[in-house]
Amino acid sequence: MPILKTYVAIALLAWGGAVSAADKVYIANENADTVSVIDAASFKVLTSVRVGNMPHNVQLSPDGKVVWVTNNGEPDIAAAPGHSGMKKADHAVMAKPGAVWLIDTGTDAVIAKIPVGLHPAHVVLAPDGRFAYITNGGDNSVTVIDAVARSVVATIPVGKFPHGLRFAPDGRQAYVANLKGGTVSVIDVASRKEITQIPVGKGPAQVGFTPDGLLAFVSLSEEKAVAVIDPATQKVMRKISVGTVPIQLFATPDSKTLLVANQGSRSKPGNTVSMVDLQTFKLAKTVVTGAGAHGVAVDREGGLAYITNTYADTVSVIDIKSRAVVSTVRVGKGPNGVSVSP
């Protein structure tokens, strides 16, 4: 493995995309109430930060100084590590208002806790870092937080059970995948209102955009497919077949490749990432990762992708150019969301 890592580092240097030693990868471990911090240069776990109940998603601010973590409030002491034989009452936990916790990337310590809605899923920051948007699956809304004042400024009604969301590259709109509604809500950022819902298919889980803003995507967890959306017309252009229960997806910085994690189910785990050529809309490669491939994040240069394997308690590192796994990192239980230093 050290030889392979050396090869990756040399390859990155060759095309001018060396990974800075300061770069980190943050992982939300949903079944451990922790966030793992990985050094992006060595692929080693640096530390583990204890956060609230069932942290689902993480997102670094555009300036890289703060990590936002969605969770279900204060940790359940009875379910913490060391209390063997005790299980979390998941439904009871998710019936309470959730929160986002903020971690300082300089110290990797929790610096703020902000209440949001029921069962918060994903969090994203506007491109300018001014506001954070959080989906609340339990009450069909999106919470808007002023990232400077660290206070809630709006709550936006959206579709049924909103899950993943992302901003368009120009920051003017946010797309929200309504998992149980079969739609993608389009939010106008200026007015903080839903302006339309795009019918997309069954089980929309996460959305994404190409950095050039020409294409949008949504994973359809109940269709083994990804729907491609034209942001100009806000209509589905086509669907691309991928693996079983696709969840998170992410386009590379050059807007040429889309990575889709295929989670499968606990009884029949998926363990692959579909790499889609966005010029032909064809499957270019299927990369085997670990059981329950779920989260996807790509570094700023487009050299490496990080995949959380929910059922394997690991993170797979994929070299995008060679389309191969170059490292596997053990993290906490139930790794879910993932974010990389911007």
Rank of each mutant, 00 (worst) to 15 (best):
K333S: 06
G52Y: 12
V338T: 05
V260A: 03
G292D: 08
D76T: 15
Q59K: 14
L118E: 14
V49N: 06
A21H: 06
R300P: 02
E223K: 09
L258C: 04
V228D: 02
I38F: 03
S221V: 14
L165I: 09
V69K: 03
R323V: 07
K160T: 14
R266W: 04
M86A: 10
N140I: 00
A251Y: 05
P75Q: 01
V338E: 11
G292T: 02
G73T: 07
V329W: 03
A227W: 10
T70Y: 10
K180H: 13
P231K: 12
A132H: 09
G264W: 07
I114A: 08
G164I: 07
A121Y: 06
S327R: 05
L12N: 10
G292V: 04
V19T: 08
D90N: 13
T289H: 02
K235R: 15
I114N: 06
K96A: 14
K87S: 12
G295R: 00
S341E: 14
V67Q: 05
G117P: 04
A126K: 10
A79E: 01
S36G: 09
A89L: 11
G16T: 05
V338H: 04
V116A: 05
I156L: 07
D254Y: 03
A92K: 15
F250T: 10
R300Y: 04
T196I: 08
S267C: 00
G243Q: 11
A80Q: 14
V158D: 01
T272K: 10
A18P: 11
A14H: 08
L165V: 02
A28F: 13
V315F: 02
A293D: 07
V25R: 00
S141T: 15
D76M: 11
F131Q: 15
V148A: 15
I77D: 12
G203M: 03
H119T: 11
A11G: 08
M1N: 09
G332E: 04
V189T: 07
K235G: 03
G85L: 13
R238I: 05
G85I: 15
H83L: 07
E223V: 11
